[in-house]
Simulated scan of single mutants.
Amino acid sequence: MDVSAFQQLVSRVTEEIAGIPLGSALESHLNAQHGAGTDLYEQLFDACKLGVRDGWLCNREGGGIRYGRVLKASEATHGFSVDVVDMQDIAGPHHVHPNGEIDLIMPLSADACFDGRPAGWCVYEAGSAHAPTVTRGRALVLYLLPQGAIQFSPVAKPDTAAA
Rank of each mutant, 00 (worst) to 15 (best):
H34L: 07
L44G: 13
P98R: 01
D46R: 15
E101R: 11
E125I: 04
G63H: 12
D86N: 13
L50Y: 08
E75V: 07
L57I: 14
A73V: 10
E42D: 11
I90G: 03
G64H: 13
A76V: 03
G62T: 05
E42N: 12
L104F: 04
A119E: 11
A73M: 03
L26C: 04
A47F: 05
D86A: 08
D103V: 00
R117C: 05
H78R: 09
A91S: 15
H78C: 14
E42M: 09
G127V: 01
R60P: 00
Q88V: 10
D111K: 09
V96W: 13
L44C: 12
C58W: 04
D46T: 15
D83S: 08
N59V: 03
E61P: 05
D103M: 05
Y124T: 09
G127S: 05
A112K: 01
R53I: 01
H130P: 01
I102R: 00
S28H: 13
G116W: 02
T77S: 10
C48L: 09
E42P: 00
M106E: 06
H97W: 05
G51S: 10
G79I: 01
P118L: 02
G116F: 01
N59P: 04
A119C: 06
I102Y: 03
A119W: 06
F114S: 05
S128L: 13
Y41K: 12
H29A: 10
W56G: 12
N59Q: 14
S128R: 15
G51L: 02
Y67S: 09
C58G: 04
G62I: 02
S81Q: 14
N59M: 11
V70K: 01
P93V: 15
A119Y: 03
S74K: 00
G68M: 06
L40G: 09
G37H: 10
G37N: 10
Y124A: 12
W121E: 07
H34M: 08
Y67G: 00
A112Q: 05
R60V: 00
G63F: 11
V70Y: 07
A131I: 06
L57R: 11
E125C: 07
I105C: 03
L50P: 00
G116T: 03
H34G: 08
I105H: 05
C58N: 08
G68L: 02
H29P: 00
H34D: 05
S81W: 13
A73W: 00
P107L: 04
G127D: 02
L30R: 11
G100T: 02
G51K: 06
L57E: 09
L44A: 12
S109M: 02
A47C: 11
Y41T: 06
